[in-house]
Write a protein that binds this DNA or RNA. Structure first.
Lengths: 116, 116
DNA sequence: CAGTATCCCAGACGATACTG
DNA sequence: CAGTATCGTCTGGGATACTG
């Protein structure tokens, strides 16, 4: 009950824009879908699971997801290093929202419509 | 029943990525939210309604939305020209999906979490 | 293993001017 | 009114090499 729920076209666009910015980045969705369902993966496991990603991009996108509060990073202080990544509770909540988008995309009329 | 509903992390990420690509572009959401609810607007009305947009960007984003099947463009052959824009049925369907995203964003824990 | 550090480039975007 | 046409900038991302 604490949020203001009346949106103008502008505030709604801004709100959704801010939300989508969390997902912007060539590899974010790939990372997210590797971690959905409560999975926990090491840096090297993500690197292997996501085809074509470089170490630079992997760490960059992970860092952004981390500061945004979507991914949690856990360091095990040992040699050789071990770092694990998993979704936060809020990050897991993304799943149904992305599913809504996916469902929408599937509804797309394929050919050129006759009318309307 | 015609769609394949089993997703791997990769195919799901690709699917959502493809869907989000329809929304990519600095002004697309602003345009969309002007047109949600079945509203029909002329080029110049959109230009006035969306603060800061240039003619170049407005037409560019509108064209993309049009070829993607989200926006419908209607030309009235008269002088001076009159062109109207409105959402397609599929475009209107975006509304609930974007609402899911917005709701997710509102759920975001604001401060630094104590635990988990 | 899990990162950093550089260099580079395509393409998205903005500013501005012009036109059927 | 509803667009085109140019030009310049900026930044996300790729390639590659190095390190605690």
């Amino acid at each position: 009950m604490s949020k203001n729920r009346s949106y103008t076209p502008k505030t709604a666009a801004d709100g959704v824009g801010a939300a989508l910015r969390f997902l912007e980045g060539r590899w974010k969705l790939s990372i997210l879908f590797q971690l959905f369902g409560g999975k926990t993966l090491r840096f090297s496991e993500l690197e292997k699971a996501i085809d074509g990603i470089s170490q630079k991009m992997l760490i960059q996108q992970l860092r952004q997801l981390e500061v945004d509060g979507i991914v949690r990073r856990t360091v095990y202080p040992q040699v050789p290093p071990k770092v694990e990544y998993e979704l936060t509770d809020w990050g897991q909540e993304l799943c149904p929202a992305l599913d809504a988008i996916l469902t929408w995309a599937e509804q797309r009329p394929s050919g050129k419509p006759e009318k309307s």
